[in-house]
Amino acid sequence: MSQSTPDTNIDVASVVEDVNLRRIGHYTLIIFFLGFFLLPLVTGIMTALKTNEAIARTVPFMPPLGGGFTLANLEYAFSQLSHAFINSLLMAIPATIINVLLASMAAFGLTMVKWRGQLVILILFLIGIFVPYQAVLVPLARFWNNTFPLADMLSPLFAGIPLLQSYHADLVPLIITHVAYGIPICMILFRSYYQSLPNSLVEAAKIDGASITKIYRRIILPISKPMFGVVFIYQFTQIYNEFLFSFTLVSSASSPEAPVTLIIPAIGTSTSGIDFGIRMSAAFLAALPTIILYVAFAEQFAKGLETESG
């Protein structure tokens, strides 16, 4: 003990110095990366709040000062997008709900019983996550436009529903498409959760005389509430942000049923180039719902991503 005391003294001193230097370096890096990730976003928001004159004159990420400040761009962008917001939500909310429910059921069905051949089903689901949408785009367009024009069939019906317009019927094929292609990833998210539940829970319920349906409704569904939160937020963000399906199935950005993502690349464009004040306003408004969701449920969002990589 007595021998080691001088050693420790020296160590403590050097360690303190070392730690301080390292800490400073460490936090400098962290702050640098905060800047890296935030700068483009800050730039976008600042630009959205500036007059065209201020955009041309000032450094893009500086806040608008004095006469440079305006809400006109945001107001204009909102007036252009307000319809599209409704379309996006009308599409994303039902699609996410159906998607999450079906995925949870599929995961339950596949974890409930072990049987040979199950692996094949599972692998088919897994590959479904990874298929690039381009590989089904031509058939998809043909199916909804020529083979089974569901939107045309439904539009007279939708015209009769209060608060809905006949063009909202065009969202139905989009909803079904999103559900079908969203099932695999959500199924895998639920599956990893259900696998972590103890087997005995389901077995106890069986011995208690519960049918499979009762086990799902009374045991599995209530227990997986937190996972429903995770998957719902993840999938809502995915569907709300999705572009390619809308691009393929909605005739153009100027169609009344166009969702937000479809309109953004076309907004604020004129012969003299892009009006970035309007473009940034629109981008900011479009991103707002998912950013709010994300900030409010950051933990669930991160959890969904962690599970996704297997």
């Binding site: 103890p198 005995s200 829970l201 077995e203 106890a204 319920a205 011995i207 009374r218 045991i219 227990i223």
Partner: peptide, 9 residues
């Protein structure tokens, strides 16, 4: 049946 981990809901 009584399970080792009790399997309470």
């Amino acid at each position: 049946m009584v399970f080792q981990d009790y399997a309470l809901y």
